[in-house]
Amino acid sequence: METYLVGGAVRDELLGLEVKDRDWVVVGATPEEMLKQGFKQVGADFPVFLHPDTREEYALARTERKAGRGYHGFAVYSAPDVTLEDDLKRRDLTINAMARSTSGELIDPFNGKADIKARQLRHVSEAFAEDPLRILRTARFAARLAPMGFRVADSTMTLMRQMTASGEVDHLVPERVWQEIQRALHENDPGTFFEVLQASDALSVLAPELSAPPTLASALRSLNCACARDADTATRFAVLLAHLPETRASQRAQALKAPNDCQDLARLASRLAPQLHEQSDTGMTEQGILTLLDEADVWRRPERFVRLLTALTCLQPGQYGTAITLLQESANAASEVNARELMAQGHKGKALGEAIRQERLRRIAGLIPKHPH
């Protein structure tokens, strides 16, 4: 029974990055032996165990054989006769297919160290083509490592295009696609993720609305702006889709099974962007501003409104600055209208609603001269 540190920890150590998670592979052991040593089994599909003290993951060496379409179509084989090289060979990229023995020796049967030096993301074997999720994982690693000069190897890009053409990408379940997108949105260079998907033809399957080059270019400019502002997931996702008409943005967000807050902000940003554009061109009025604030429901959702303003700012970086400032100041002023004071003046029912509206308009109008068009 032998234990090896594998995958990301070995890769990150060679890259000089902080090692966050350590995964281990155990060769020559059975589940019974692991349980006897106090490990706790997790995961029903294949034998993975938690160390009794460190809680780190120890997986028995295993191989996988394609047995169906898509991400789930695999039969897993794990037994004491599976070698370390067998286990490493089933991994996606050479930089993730290295191991280190307990004595410190690097085991690198697929030249991952050389690919790190050459800054290449290269597939380990033709088995890469059996799992379409690996296209998204490769794109995500490209997004993470792009600032260090990494790019997808030509042979791997060719293979990914072949996978897309064969229809493998059509079998990805939306939940897994969303998981990869969500992670990618917070990588070092999220735009690279979508560029790799575009280059592998997978974007036209997963989000065809974004795949036209001008649309993608605009979306990625906005995404870079949102990342520079350290925006949250919902805002980053919203700016990607907000260049689309509201219906198409809403449909794509739904199809990707994005969480409700992400769908909601994407829909709202794509609906209000044209209105903001029009008002910026023609000159902001108190009625126009109040309509935007009402549609954004700033009165009940002030936190969402802050995210919305970031998204709208990033749709046309540098163009809407004055309008956004005016919207923010208008929201602050209009939100301070006190319904109780108006009730004390005798307003009630529909008249109270109209009085609130008129007072909000009055306060917004007072701000407009400070921001001439």
Results as ranks from 00 to 15, higher is better:
residue 292 L to E: 01
residue 303 E to P: 02
residue 243 H to M: 04
residue 264 D to Y: 13
residue 256 L to F: 14
residue 230 D to R: 15
residue 307 R to Q: 11
residue 244 L to I: 08
residue 287 Q to P: 00
residue 244 L to M: 12
residue 248 R to E: 14
residue 330 S to C: 03
residue 320 Y to T: 04
residue 292 L to T: 08
residue 252 R to F: 08
residue 296 A to F: 01
residue 231 A to Q: 00
residue 323 A to C: 03
residue 217 A to Y: 10
residue 245 P to R: 11
residue 305 F to G: 00
residue 265 L to V: 06
residue 209 E to I: 03
residue 239 V to W: 12
residue 310 T to I: 14
residue 302 P to V: 03
residue 295 E to A: 11
residue 297 D to H: 12
residue 318 G to F: 10
residue 212 A to M: 00
residue 237 F to I: 02
residue 290 L to V: 03
residue 219 A to F: 09
residue 267 R to D: 04
residue 257 K to A: 10
residue 332 N to L: 12
residue 250 S to I: 00
residue 300 R to L: 14
residue 242 A to M: 11
residue 219 A to R: 01
residue 296 A to D: 01
residue 253 A to Q: 08
residue 232 D to W: 04
residue 321 G to S: 14
residue 280 S to H: 15
residue 324 I to Q: 05
residue 259 P to V: 11
residue 309 L to Y: 01
residue 270 S to D: 00
residue 214 P to T: 11
residue 324 I to D: 08
residue 312 L to Q: 11
residue 289 I to F: 02
residue 246 E to N: 09
residue 221 R to A: 15
residue 308 L to W: 06
residue 232 D to R: 15
residue 278 E to V: 09
residue 327 L to S: 06
residue 216 L to F: 04
residue 234 A to S: 13
residue 285 T to E: 08
residue 290 L to Y: 07
residue 320 Y to D: 07
residue 330 S to W: 00
residue 310 T to Y: 07
residue 245 P to T: 11
residue 240 L to N: 10
residue 327 L to H: 07
residue 262 C to A: 14
residue 266 A to L: 09
residue 330 S to P: 03
residue 310 T to F: 04
residue 234 A to M: 06
residue 313 T to N: 09
residue 295 E to N: 10
residue 307 R to A: 12
residue 293 L to G: 08
residue 280 S to K: 12
residue 296 A to N: 03
residue 323 A to E: 14
residue 232 D to T: 05
residue 256 L to Y: 14
residue 294 D to W: 10
residue 278 E to T: 14
residue 319 Q to A: 05
residue 254 Q to P: 01
residue 293 L to E: 06
residue 327 L to R: 05
residue 215 T to F: 04
residue 265 L to S: 02
residue 293 L to C: 09
residue 217 A to F: 02
residue 292 L to V: 08
residue 299 W to T: 07
residue 235 T to R: 07
residue 266 A to I: 06
residue 284 M to H: 11
residue 215 T to D: 11
residue 329 E to V: 06
residue 291 T to G: 11
residue 227 C to A: 15
residue 265 L to E: 05
residue 232 D to M: 07
residue 298 V to Y: 05
residue 301 R to G: 01
residue 329 E to N: 11
residue 210 L to R: 02
residue 226 A to H: 01
residue 219 A to T: 09
residue 249 A to L: 02
